[in-house]
Write a protein that binds this DNA or RNA. Sequence first.
DNA 1: TAGACAATCATCCTTTTGGGTGAGGCTAAA
DNA 2: TTTAGCCTCACCCAAAAGGATGATTGTCTA
Lengths: 141, 141
Amino acid sequence: MKRTILLYSLALAALLFLLQWLQFGYIVRDLSLEFYLGVVAVVFTAVGIWAGLKLTKPKTKVVLQSNFIFNEEEYNRLGISKRELEVLGLMAQGLSNQEIADKLFVSLNTIKTHSANLFIKLDAKRRTQAVQKAKELGLIG
Amino acid sequence: MKRTILLYSLALAALLFLLQWLQFGYIVRDLSLEFYLGVVAVVFTAVGIWAGLKLTKPKTKVVLQSNFIFNEEEYNRLGISKRELEVLGLMAQGLSNQEIADKLFVSLNTIKTHSANLFIKLDAKRRTQAVQKAKELGLIG
DNA sequence: TAGACAATCATCCTTTTGGGTGAGGCTAAA
DNA sequence: TTTAGCCTCACCCAAAAGGATGATTGTCTA
């Protein structure tokens, strides 16, 4: 960054010097002032563009990992049912069994059964582990 | 984009016209040519920088989902300690409090305290929710 | 040096989770 | 039509997690 600023400063100084030289030189003595100014304008516009691009840090646009691809093979291989996957998803969102039961309009016991089956199929001992494994396997986003 | 080009063209035309006007006007008749040229250079440099930034498509540096960027701002804002973050990470891996305690060579009660503090700081009611929020905030991978 | 804070551990109590088992209803396939 | 699988629900018991509170130690820092 500092080097870029230095370079830009040097370039600007050189151009100003060049202007000075041209002004009293013999090369463009017969050219019209309008043309002269036009050249200056164009050159400095170019310098400005270059400087602007150099000086600004590249915008880092963080693309979130929203590109989740459902792993249907694993889903079928593990024999997980639709309802179980649904429970798994809500589980991953941090809901309790009771909250999941309320959301799906079923009893708490039903959710407990689903989760128990999930733990067996995912070979997990806890819901956090089940969620972690399910994310690794691409079953949930 | 097209509108930007049009705007830039108009601005350039306006500036050239201004130059023309200044050149034969009475305002800067007594100013030195060097000063005049300097102003032109500076103005067009600025225009160039602006145009350069506007015209170039924002450099989108796509960060793949695999590399996790730790969000230090959120980490500091929430006042989470090192040890708490450590516990949070192990929690996200699906470990139980007892397993975390064993891995960190501390007592189960210590882990419970850490997790309780985490839940307060993350505004979570359950460990699964804490993990989910922490992932959203970029505290864990 | 006093105060703030992180890390550690404890106790008591409640809630949630998980394991095991059984069972009825419903649907799709053999 | 019988079987298999899914969804549903229940009960009991044990383990884990969570809430509240207090306390000690060590390390910075104002």
